[in-house]
Design a binder for these strands. Structure first.
Lengths: 167, 167
DNA sequence: GTTGACGGTTCTAAAATAGAACTTTAAGAC
DNA sequence: GTCTTAAAGTTCTATTTTAGAACCGTCAAC
């Protein structure tokens, strides 16, 4: 499958993966949330080649995750800042960090701690149900085809039994 | 930067990205959460080459996200199931899906809906603070170096001012 | 004794990435 | 005036990764 066809899949995960599903995009976004904004700053803090950095920044701008705005005239210089769409990636970034905190730390402990300004405490992110507020786990969730599924739902059952022809 | 050096970075995001930070790993994990378990099932539902599928499954087993267990003897056949470490990836998967639901849907609407078994309602995932229960946003969070940071914190300030030599 | 399922491995061509050098515009030092 | 530096890229070649297809080994069923 080509990268381009990913964003047309009838799957919100696949479409999001088309935007952030590579190593460098996620690391660039990490830097964005740490207030990094300029090409050379990204380049200094990530061991990324200039070529790929330019490429990924362009992609993130194209998808509306970053905005490229001039911060000086003559010579024109730009910086990259998160749009609202980009800021909305925060739960993804935080859940990735949290999983690493739980499963990938060495004996020295966590590389970074997070403090919630509102309540003042060091915290972990918790994912809860928007309706009842209880923490979520995979086993407590049922999935249903939505209006944007590949085919109208009554057909889907049969298609699955006959085998997945076109996917 | 090589893939291998990613998992040694003093950053929980980078270490997690070493495990799941590529297109195919995330799509394979999506299938795992949809109860797909066998090589040929993965191959049928993803347009992945057998070569890469074998490679990624091996990687996920190596990192302890999946377990490879025989489901029949002679001939030996295996299936891949999520470990607890793998099940803990659920918030990452769900936050990725949710971002896609908000920012990447077309006019037809969401491809998939999620129902919470506990309360029975269709829901969205919400990320909240473990301490006060309020929803989290990037701007309400302060970061601090933790015990596993690259260097003891007092030095970090100066190093940053002098420039980032080794990163 | 041939066919088919399953779970891979091996092969070549195409695409992506790494690493380094080069470019452009303009300011500041000498 | 000339030289150096800075920022934000672009261009180049070599290496690595991925795509796409064919092949392999084991067993069961026909």
């Amino acid at each position: 499958m080509k990268w381009d066809s990913l964003e047309d899949e009838p799957c919100s995960l696949a479409r999001t993966v088309a935007v952030i599903g590579d190593r460098w995009s996620l690391l660039i976004l990490r830097e964005c949330f740490l207030r990094i904004r300029r090409f050379d700053e990204f380049q200094a803090s990530l061991e990324i080649t200039r070529h790929l950095l330019a490429d990924r920044l362009k992609k993130l701008v194209r998808f509306g995750v970053l905005r490229r705005i001039p911060y000086q005239e003559s010579p024109k210089r730009y910086e990259y800042i998160l749009t609202q769409k980009g800021l909305d990636l925060y739960p993804i970034i935080m859940s990735i960090v949290h999983w690493g905190n739980i499963h990938m730390v060495d004996s020295r402990g966590r590389p970074m701690l997070h403090q919630h300004k509102s309540c003042g405490k060091m915290f972990d992110p918790v994912m809860v149900c928007s309706e009842c507020g209880e923490p979520l786990s995979a086993k407590a969730v049922h999935v249903h085809p939505g209006p944007g599924a590949r085919r109208p739902s009554p057909v889907l059952e049969q298609r699955t039994k006959r085998g997945l022809e076109s996917r």
